[in-house]
């Protein structure tokens, strides 16, 4: 989806403002929003790509005016309601009213370290051969799906070079929408800054994205 999350190349946001000695969290609610998001993710009721898709589906003006943990919180509420785990009424009334729905797993305190240590590996074996090799010139397709994709707008339709091959990984475009894991080869594809941004680009800059094979065609 061509949403406000896809920010590469926008120019209207002003300077980056680093904060000296920044703490991991800036408020108690950020800690709790972080923890409930990770703990609910561990229930297995949705995957990471569905989670990203939920965040990206926020109304654009709200997405752009929210802090990142606010975006996480909105995404979490959306997923909980979509899966009937929590109702809109419960959120509005700020209390549990209906019966809980069984979830696949709950994250126990004793399992936290092991669960974080395991992570969520996206790498998959595939019998399909990789279509491209290092050094190949490839063009990113000009696709504009109304659904989740990890091909940013600023590289679409541009020619770049395959620099690295990362094996096959879960394909987010399918995985975010019930299409299963559908593993696809993943490549680091590098573009010249001047190809992406024209004469306004810096000639001494190169930019790469990690692109799944279905995003690419031979150039």
């Amino acid at each position: 989806m061509n949403g406000p999350h896809d920010m590469g190349g926008m120019q209207c946001f002003g300077p980056v403002k680093p904060e000296a000695n920044e703490p991991p969290f800036h408020a108690d609610w950020e800690k709790r929003a972080f923890a409930i998001t990770v703990a609910m993710g561990a229930t297995g009721e949705w995957n990471q790509d569905e989670s990203r898709n939920a965040r990206e589906s926020m109304p654009p003006a709200r997405y752009l005016s929210s802090s990142y943990y606010q975006i996480w919180f909105e995404g979490l509420k959306r997923l909980l309601q979509e899966r009937d785990l929590v109702s809109a009424d419960e959120i509005a009334q700020a209390r549990a009213m209906g019966e809980p729905k069984p979830v696949k797993r709950t994250l126990a305190a004793a399992a936290v370290a092991e669960t974080l240590g395991r992570g969520g590996p996206s790498r998959r074996e595939t019998t399909k051969p990789a279509r491209f090799k290092v050094g190949d010139r490839v063009r990113t397709k000009n696709i504009n799906p109304p659904t989740h994709t990890r091909l940013p707008r600023y590289v679409r339709g541009h020619v770049g070079t395959v620099e690295r091959i990362y094996g096959a990984h879960i394909y987010p475009d399918a995985h975010a929408h019930g299409g299963g894991e559908d593993p696809q080869w993943l490549y680091a594809v590098a573009f010249e800054g001047s190809d992406l941004w024209g004469p306004d680009g810096d000639p001494a800059v190169r930019v790469s994205v990690d692109a799944f094979e279905p995003y690419l065609e031979p150039a």
Binding site: A35, I36, I91, L107, A108
Partner: peptide, 22 residues
């Protein structure tokens, strides 16, 4: 956020001790 956390806890979806540990 605290309200949603208590709903999730009450429904048994999250363990408050696990949240603290995270």
């Amino acid at each position: 956020v605290r309200a949603l956390e208590s709903i999730l806890t009450e429904k048994g979806y999250v363990d408050p001790k696990a949240l603290d540990l995270l």
